[in-house]
């Protein structure tokens, strides 16, 4: 068996790293298309067509990162998977219902001149919103270490709003990059609003986070690591301020630098995610279950690692290929 020399500890780190990568890519990629879904205006059909056209070629593959993340959690850390999802059974079910609604609405609305096109559009919007709220709520409860008391619930609701705002923000940045004219103006407006809510959300969640676990607070507030780590929130806020400036200036820039807001949103996602990762490593469920306690059999992990090492770079390569093929402004919605 290849990778025989890797110890269980190393395997655990590799798999938790892969899991993190899958979650991060999911949050960014499906994040923007969920965000576009949440922003869908119920009253303006022409916007809806263009908005949906902008995510058409991508959403399917984007959602696959969630399957990979849940899959990795399932077989690398089965105990964490069942504990996490059994505690969050109802929100997880609601999230799945949301994903089902938006996934099918997307296709039903467009296959043929539908009589009920607007209903499918609305089910796309509300399905997306249900998904983002449920994901945020689950993230919140997860961070508390699967607590169920009133404080944890409050924190989870805050996280639900925060995650929705984050998705809506990255979604509007995506639209700034992909859309033109009126819709782009609208996207600038959404992005400016989203940026405010998001900044508030990040501050609130970060502060609340410090009160949840003693060792997390210690890590962030003590020398010397605390000072180094402070670079993350500082950079994050510098970027958000820069983004606010850009969102004011770009509409007059005649199409230059339209990719910048999306790029900044992406970096902000990566920064927030790494702050989160640093806070809770080596736990897979904060304060409850460590990587090593939850890890499954090393030989099976080695067997899958062979495929992972070969296949994941290929996946990344053809994902990049697709983004290059469809680069630039999205076409009007027309199929095949």
């Amino acid at each position: 068996m290849p990778f025989e020399s890797l110890s269980a500890e190393t395997l655990g780190d590799i798999y938790v790293g892969l899991l993190g990568l899958a979650v991060l890519l999911y949050a960014i990629l499906d994040g923007y298309d969920l965000g576009v879904g949440v922003l869908l205006p119920p009253r303006e059909e022409k916007f809806r067509d263009d908005m949906i056209a902008s995510i058409g070629p991508y959403w399917d593959a984007n959602e696959t990162w969630l399957v990979l993340a849940i899959g990795l959690l399932l077989f690398a850390f089965p105990e964490a998977h069942s504990e996490f999802l059994q505690s969050l059974y109802i929100p997880a079910t609601l999230m799945l219902i949301g994903l089902i609604l938006r996934g099918v609405s997307f296709d039903f609305r467009a296959k043929v001149a539908q009589v009920r096109k607007r209903s499918w559009d609305l089910s796309f919007k509300w399905g997306s919103l249900l998904t983002t709220l449920a994901q945020g709520y689950m993230l919140g409860i997860y961070v508390t270490g699967l607590r169920t008391d009133i404080w944890a619930q409050g924190f989870a609701l805050l996280a639900a709003l925060g995650v929705t705002a984050a998705y809506a923000f990255i979604g509007s940045c995506w639209l700034i990059m992909k859309a033109e004219n009126e819709l782009q103006e609208k996207a600038f407006y959404w992005a400016r609003r989203g940026l405010f809510v998001l900044s508030g959300g990040i501050i609130a969640v970060s502060l609340a986070n410090l009160t949840l676990h003693d060792d997390v607070r210690e890590l962030w507030l003590s020398a010397p690591w605390g000072y180094l780590l402070m670079a993350i929130p500082v950079t994050c806020f510098a970027l958000l301020v820069l983004c606010a400036v850009l969102l004011k200036k770009l509409p007059e820039a005649k199409g230059k630098g339209e990719w910048l807001p999306f790029f900044i949103a992406l970096v902000v996602f990566v920064l927030c995610f790494s702050a989160f990762g640093i806070s809770y490593y080596p736990y897979v469920i904060p304060g409850q279950l460590t990587v090593m306690d939850a890890l499954s059999d090393a030989n099976s992990l080695r067997f899958l690692l062979v495929g992972t090492v070969i296949v994941v770079p290929c996946i990344l390569a053809y994902t990049v290929l697709v983004y290059r093929i469809f680069a630039g402004k999205s076409e009007k919605l027309s199929y095949y």
Binding site: T64, V67, L68, G71, L72, L74, F75, A76, P78, S296, S300, F303, L304, G307, T308, V311, V312, I315
Partner: peptide, 9 residues
């Protein structure tokens, strides 16, 4: 697990 994993990948 690995069989499902290979399917996803």
């Amino acid at each position: 697990g690995p069989l499902l994993g290979y399917e996803v990948l």
